[in-house]
Design a protein around this nucleic acid. Sequence first.
DNA 1: AATACCACTATCTTTTAGGATACTATAATG
DNA 2: CATTATAGTATCCTAAAAGATAGTGGTATT
Lengths: 111, 111
Amino acid sequence: MKNKEKHVNVRDVQDVLDLIGGRWKSAILASLCDKEKRFNELKRDLGTITPKILIKELKFLEMNKLIHKADSLAVSSFQIYHLTAHGRSLEPLIVSIVMWGKKHREMLNYS
Amino acid sequence: MKNKEKHVNVRDVQDVLDLIGGRWKSAILASLCDKEKRFNELKRDLGTITPKILIKELKFLEMNKLIHKADSLAVSSFQIYHLTAHGRSLEPLIVSIVMWGKKHREMLNYS
DNA sequence: AATACCACTATCTTTTAGGATACTATAATG
DNA sequence: CATTATAGTATCCTAAAAGATAGTGGTATT
């Protein structure tokens, strides 16, 4: 593997981490993997997040085409957040992360 | 899925992101997936990282048992960084991240 | 013996992320 | 009609992450 190719990999990794990294982004995505949700529903799921941070992260994820905000069909005038097709393509990755996390915690318990 | 279980997932995701998130951590791990490396070798691979940041991240990863620093067997008095068994268990995840990153970039190019 | 490379350390500054807290306009509910 | 819930906004603040730059002590090379 040449040096140039390695740099590309580094960039690939960093690009993805920009999208799903940080304290909340992949938690939000994980929560939306389960089902589409409204703002306050997400807020409750995430526990300690403040509205300012949540809206900021949602806008970021929306800008990056991973989620989409739409009018709820069920109750008019309610907004609902859901994953886009592109966002759903991240689901296996999120699942892998959650699974590795569980394994990691087990390992720490047994060592 | 009950609310409690969801919070656990959120924590799982956040735990893993603490380990591999941020600008450099998974880039370093990705680079070490390829092969074990010395400090300056890593520095070159990562391009723009400063020594202060690199050593900080290496120490963090070492503390979390994902990498290990050892005396090089080849050249005495040289230090070499390599993944631990636990760190290697992250490799499929890193590979998935890199692959999704490539796909993501392609998608952005075609839209 | 001089130079260059290796693996850091130290200091200072900027940038960013994230949190605390309070507030608001609209809609729904009892 | 009063209360509660929804979906945010606005302002201020702190801590942590990251970068720029310089320096150091040891080793290897020529």
